[in-house]
């Protein structure tokens, strides 16, 4: 028990890094994903080509490679980011691509008639999206978004490769130093707690959207 208390501070500070990567990625990548998803469904072909290429690139290469590329690769071109910023850039660009594909699917599931009935009621395109389309899309995509959100918590452990100290790294360091499994078990428990909280929040959101079909 005293050993647990002894390593807890370093684990918690690692968890702080995990959470900060997690929250910033969610906060930026979801709106970005909505915009990219909208762009992918636009009738302006060059835009859809460009966005499809972006999604293909981000989903077609390992996130680990993208992290390494942004932090170790770009400096060779004279573009240098601090570790934390590099991690956020890679995570946001990567996750926005996954979110975009999910939102694209959701947007395409909405019947054209919904846009048309909004149009004859003289709602602007912006009002139509905000009041009618997005709420329906959100309801459709929530389970898939939930999957990505939970993946993100665990993927955030990849930041170790560019030398950031996250939860997993803190546990790993303690295990290597003290030759015991306890830190790794604790790390697993903390990941489980985080994903449990996320699952709970997602369930609440799904329930919020369950009073209409």
């Amino acid at each position: 028990m005293s050993y647990i208390l002894q390593i807890l501070p370093s684990l918690l500070s690692g968890a702080q890094m995990t959470l900060s990567i997690f929250f910033w990625t969610i906060i930026v990548a979801i709106p970005l994903g909505i915009l990219v998803g909208l762009g992918q469904t636009s009738r302006f072909k060059p835009l859809t080509w460009l966005l499809n290429f972006y999604v293909w690139l981000m989903r077609g290469t390992p996130l680990l490679l993208q992290l390494i590329f942004v932090f170790y690769g770009l400096p060779l071109l004279g573009i240098v980011f601090p570790r934390y910023d590099a991690a956020l850039i890679a995570f946001i660009l990567n996750y926005a691509a996954y979110f975009a594909e999910i939102f694209r699917g959701g947007l395409q599931a909405i019947p054209v008639g919904q846009y048309e009935s909004a149009k004859v009621l003289r709602l602007s395109y912006g009002q139509t999206l905000r009041k009618i389309i997005i709420p329906q899309v959100v309801k459709i995509v929530l389970p898939s978004i939930g999957n990505e959100v939970i993946n993100l918590i665990k993927d955030s452990s990849l930041v170790y490769v560019i030398g950031l100290g996250d939860l997993l790294r803190a546990g790993n360091v303690a295990t290597a130093r003290d030759v015991t499994l306890v830190p790794l078990v604790l790390v697993a428990v903390m990941y489980l707690l985080l994903t449990a909280v996320c699952t709970g929040v997602l369930r609440l959101l799904e329930r919020h959207y369950s009073n209409w079909r």
Partner: peptide, 15 residues
């Protein structure tokens, strides 16, 4: 709002 339309499949807003 000159023209109102009632669609074949109504297209009420489900939300």
């Amino acid at each position: 709002a000159v023209i109102g339309v009632v669609f074949q499949d109504f297209q009420l807003f489900p939300n």
